[in-house]
Computed example of a mutant assay.
Amino acid sequence: MVTMNLGMLHYVLDHVYGAFVHRTKISPPFFSKGWGGSKLDLLERLIKQLFPEFEGQNWPPTLIQPVWRTIWETKTACLKEGVFRTPCDEQLLSALPPESHIARVAFLMPKFVSPQKMACVVHLAGTGDHSFERRLRLGGPLLKENISTMVLESPFYGQRRPMLQYGAKLLCVSDLLLLGRATIEETRSLLHWLDSQQGFGKLGVCGLSMGGVHAAMVGSLHPTPVATFPFLSPHSAVVAFCEGILQYGTAWEALKRDLAMEQSELTLEEVRERMRTVLSLTDVTRFPIPKNPQAVILVAATDDGYIPKHSVLELQKAWPGSEVRWVTGGHVSSFLLHNGEFRKAIVDGLNRLPWKESPL
């Protein structure tokens, strides 16, 4: 009974937090400017190109050359920040807001260790994670395991946020797809840079919530095995916006009005069905199985108000050999309290990869 009450408390905490963030008028809801018009049509075509029949396309990606500056260094570690022009093609670039054209990364690594004897994990942003700090705190203790951390600032977030966007509340549905596709392209280029230019012995990609969906997509599409860590993540954005708490922070009436300009007498259920259809493009179970599914470790919460259990299990089922680890808590409390479990998953997943052979 005590366990049940604690579980309910975590679940209620998610809803209390969600009510404050998503049901008050402190900030506008998601997608207050509608679907995105012609941009949505473009993004639907481009996202479909990521599905299995297009596996391996555009590889190797554009070789990036980040420009670095040192933030701090100690006797044993160094933190740098770098910028590079997003490697997205002209179609994606024209759809991205100008503020998102330059990507920013933080790079934390131990000193005096050969990259060939190190691993590096790229950490992707969850919804509302505009800065490097939280992900650097997650990765920092891994330095003693010779695991470096690279943190990508997402398009539409942080210094890449469009001027008219309030916080993490994307203006259009097309922005969500654009954020995801651009993040995938940038992360693939970062992994290619870490491999071909820096020579790291092992690579991984992780993310929490939305970042976990993007991490799963990147891990799926990578042509060689990378350790993949979706934390507190659904198998699709459909779950987050149509089943979980984020549905209460979505501008359904604005989306209805936007569609009503094309079709008369739309019901709210038809609008929701349109959202399910569009966001089905983010269904990771439709993506290829990663090259080494044993190096995929999902960490999920037992009482998550944002991500239902069935969604986590759908991804595990689609990727035989992957592992799910459950932590006791909700979305918010697990985000705050279970970094130790996230770090252990990263170490264990990387240990399931062989070291890259050094060139002769």
Rank of each mutant, 00 (worst) to 15 (best):
D304P: 00
V238C: 09
I245M: 05
I297R: 04
E253M: 12
L13Y: 04
L152F: 09
L190P: 09
Y11E: 02
F30E: 02
V332R: 06
I64W: 09
H101W: 05
P234Q: 14
Y248T: 01
L203E: 02
V312L: 08
P162A: 11
L124F: 06
A240P: 13
T62P: 13
C120Q: 05
S311P: 06
R104K: 15
I64N: 06
G201K: 06
K344W: 11
F231G: 02
H130Q: 07
A19N: 02
V12A: 05
C172N: 05
E44K: 15
Q116E: 06
F156H: 07
S154Y: 10
G36E: 00
A216W: 07
G7S: 04
L96K: 00
L176I: 05
T183I: 15
L315Y: 02
A251H: 07
Q49L: 12
K48N: 15
L279R: 03
K256I: 10
V278A: 09
M109C: 10
E262L: 10
D303W: 11
N339D: 10
H123K: 13
E133F: 10
C206V: 11
K33M: 13
Y11S: 01
V296I: 10
D283T: 00
R23I: 09
P60Q: 12
G82E: 02
W59E: 10
H15M: 08
I307A: 14
Q91H: 09
I245Y: 02
K75T: 03
K25D: 13
V121M: 15
E253K: 03
L171P: 01
G207C: 14
T302Y: 13
L9Q: 06
F107D: 01
R274W: 12
E153K: 14
L208H: 07
G321P: 00
N146S: 14
R343M: 05
E133C: 12
L353E: 07
M275N: 08
Y248P: 01
G349E: 06
T228L: 13
D303I: 04
D14V: 00
A168L: 13
M109K: 12
F84C: 01
G128K: 04
G34Q: 05
L232P: 00
P162V: 07
I307E: 07
N5C: 08
W355R: 13
A251K: 15
F200V: 03
S27M: 14
E186Q: 11
A260I: 12
G56W: 14
L177C: 03
